[in-house]
Design a protein around this nucleic acid. Structure first.
Lengths: 223, 223
DNA sequence: TCATTAATTTAGCCTTGTCTAAAATATTTT
DNA sequence: AAAATATTTTAGACAAGGCTAAATTAATGA
């Protein structure tokens, strides 16, 4: 099994996140994402291309090759399993897990990760609601939608937060929103697209569209 | 909190292990331990000296400063807690934990380590019977473990027998086991948890788990 | 379309940690 | 005690991964 440096892994992961289903990634985007100068990014792109992880032509943008995506999924698997472990077992709060998982994800031992997976009970979603790829890179999907588009007065479960910025987390914390929270939208204000949200028996409160669009929910699974 | 590169940490740890209570370490010894050329070792020694982790004069050998020992104990703490975790929770076998812990030990998050410690129940000895330094670098003095949990093929010294029943003593006598006897476990039979024991050049023999769990050993103290 | 601006790449330099070859210092042998 | 040998250090090089400044290519707008 080939393995990659921490730096290479960080590039691969960032590219994976930036490229959607179809789109190309640009040098500047990646530079911004990694907080690394564009010139350094170009250097690494050449290296990743040489290793056949990247489809890249100068000045033309780039995306991961099939092999590159496979590698990316492996890294993401490690990251999310560690996040799950930190949150579930070590009782880290869900806004603290990312930074530590960022380091743990670079420990490459297939056995470690597979045993950790087993120990955790093969979780399919991490504490942020993102799916955890399995050994074969397969990722579960659940039907999730942003709360900006759900029908009024229908209770849904928060399953994903699409923005990890501290200010964002601050707002969520302030309003008692976390993964698993059940909420409903009571009213949509057309003027600024803000939403009135209600959680259980708490007093309803307002979320701006800026915030709301990053909060994703799914149907409540009855058991 | 100052932190150190993976490479620096590996040097510090190796020096800690090589220097006993009193002795000086030589460049060649360290070079052999780390499988790194002596010239490279010299370079790193200069760097560690500049960071005041080392008492070092050229051609004279070296040892860790007080600060260096503190750093070493932190690394060892991380290493041994991870070994404990791998063995206890993830069910890694003995010979597999070291290599993985070697990587995990370089993840530096005080919070991670302290929470892991708590999660594991503040273990004082790792699976090899080596003491785990606490948050303050304090290490428990050598303690004993049952031979049911020691690694294979590692010679240990019997220091306690937890059952004084005549039938027990009969078995011990029959197999030439007494306090101070040095023995090693050659094989563990998962079916009934019995152990194959070897003492010196004698023929190996079997002990049932019933008996074995009452026999306690400690590390052989090197003088 | 042609000039200006923005994005990207190249060129050259720096740091970390490694190496080899050669020089300096210690140690051992005779 | 001098010669031979072993150990350690210095000098100079290299790869990885970053940076700045300058050059090149692409995109935009008059």
């Amino acid at each position: 099994m080939t393995s990659y440096s921490t730096s290479e892994e960080n590039y691969i992961k960032a590219i994976y996140h930036l490229q959607g289903e179809e789109g190309m990634v640009t040098t500047n985007e990646l530079s911004a994402e990694l907080k690394t100068r564009p010139a350094s990014v170009t250097d690494m792109l050449k290296k990743l291309k040489a290793k056949k992880l990247l489809n890249y032509e100068k000045y033309q943008g780039f995306r991961l090759s099939a092999e590159g995506r496979k590698v990316a999924l492996g890294i993401i698997r490690r990251h999310r399993l560690w996040e799950f472990f930190l949150s579930e077992k070590l009782k880290f709060s869900w806004d603290e897990v990312h930074e530590v998982a960022e380091q743990l994800e670079h420990v490459t031992s297939k056995k470690l990760i597979d045993k950790l997976d087993e120990y955790l009970g093969f979780p399919r979603f991490d504490p942020h609601g993102d799916p955890i790829p399995d050994q074969h890179g397969k990722i579960a999907t659940h039907e999730r939608v942003s709360i900006t588009v759900i029908p009024l007065n229908q209770s849904m479960e928060v399953c994903h937060v699409g923005n990890q910025a501290p200010d964002m987390l601050d707002i969520l914390k302030h309003n008692n929103i976390s993964i698993g929270t059940r909420l409903e939208v009571r009213k949509k204000f057309a003027f600024d697209n803000s939403l009135e949200i209600k959680i259980g028996r708490q007093q309803p409160f307002i979320l701006s569209n800026e915030v709301a669009r990053h909060i994703w929910v799914k149907k409540i699974e009855r058991s």
